[in-house]
Write a protein that binds this DNA or RNA. Structure first.
Lengths: 228, 228
DNA sequence: CCATGTGAAAGCGTTCACAGCG
DNA sequence: CGCTGTGAACGCTTTCACATGG
């Protein structure tokens, strides 16, 4: 039972694949709950809402964990995806800005479920200092550097107004944070060893709105997009 | 001054372009604030955090609104993007599920700023009925069909637990909603004339986590992704 | 003369179709 | 025999490089 495989990541997974792995994970957990030990790419695809060929391509990137003529071992595959995503590893996360969005993110269960622990929040409003935001406590922004170091925070979610986002990012990086997820409508520039990604909550709504707009004018094109 | 142009949409814009138009919009508004009447693709690209060639390709999809040898008229371009996105049109939006996420989305200013008005929220918890969620009131879920019709709601944000998401989607569609943005971890199936899109808030964090994981193991690859 | 607008090239991602293996 | 794993085809996106025109 020499369980060792290729230890970790062969080479970086394509982002498109990375983006779908959580879907498969969910489908696998669901299948596990139904006592299904094996799953074909066809079944997995149906549960995840994607194409079966895509499932096979994606999974083949992780290695050969399927059995020809049979399918994928639910449990084994789940473990492999978890390992590849580094989902065992726990990440300490800070939320900067304890407004509506910050509060929602701090309380969001989807994060802790996947090993992202929000261990601190920061704001400039003294009324908020010491209050709770999920499991985290709200600190004054001035404590940022100290708390980031003490709590070994490596990732941060920026939910501040756009004007201060770059300044916050600079301070986070200076304090040792290496991954930033930016919800503020601003373009951030950081040192090359830091990863930054942006989320615009309104973009998807806007795309939906565009298609509604199309349907309304151009009565000819129903053009329904069903993306899961 | 016959201001009439191509009236509306020539043909559907590619999604990749659609996704960046808001970035340009933001950059243009910013530039307007600085009294800049003209902007080159180079300057616009810098402000939006993308490549200049991409800006030109994207903008050329909307028509020829630039002047060779000069650049783009800030104000004109802003209007054209707004028109193309159907951003004048107002959309009535419902939020289903008044939990953390639902509350944050209901209060999110980014929506109303772009013409998406959250005019109703729904939940099954009687304690929440009648309470406020941004400008909207929380209704019992049983009132869904009536309120959707009365308030002419065409778009809905699903922030419920996964198990009920499909049922909610069915009821929304039956009541006349034509666009659904799904935040629940479930695959939704709807009639072909309805658009569904999915948002997974944890995906971007997961991708960041993956790169951290890579950097940690494979000490060789710094691999910083800076996506704006 | 200079920046737009655009064909053409290069790069990714998805889908197809089937060889290969359990 | 059936399903995985994968080369090859296809389509979409990005980038390049330059002809075009104000």
């Amino acid at each position: 039972m020499a369980m060792r495989a290729a230890q970790t990541a062969a080479r970086p997974l394509p982002e498109a694949t990375l983006r779908r792995l959580p879907l498969y994970l969910r489908a696998l957990v669901e299948a596990s709950g139904e006592r299904l030990l094996m799953l074909s790419s066809e079944e997995l695809a149906a549960r995840a809402g994607v194409n079966a060929a895509q499932v096979r391509k994606d999974l083949s990137q992780l290695g050969s964990y399927g059995t020809r003529g049979v399918g994928y071992d639910t449990e084994l595959l789940r473990q492999q995806i978890n390992r590849q995503l580094g989902l065992n590893r726990e990440h300490n996360v800070a939320v900067i800005g304890a407004g509506n969005l910050g509060q929602a993110l701090g309380n969001y269960r989807g994060f802790s479920e996947r090993g992202f622990n929000v261990v601190a929040a920061f704001d400039t409003d003294p009324d908020k200092f010491g209050s709770r935001l999920g499991t985290a406590v709200v600190y004054p922004l001035s404590e940022l550097a100290r708390v980031v170091r003490e709590k070994k925070i490596t990732m941060a979610l920026i939910t501040t107004p756009a004007q201060v986002a770059q300044d916050i990012a600079d301070r986070l990086v200076a304090a040792g944070v290496s991954s930033v997820l930016n919800f503020a409508p601003a373009v951030l520039t950081v040192a090359p060893h830091v990863s930054v990604r942006k989320v615009d909550l309104a973009v998807e709504l806007q795309i939906l709105g565009y298609y509604e707009h199309l349907r309304a004018n151009h009565t000819a094109a129903p053009r329904a997009t069903t993306i899961n």
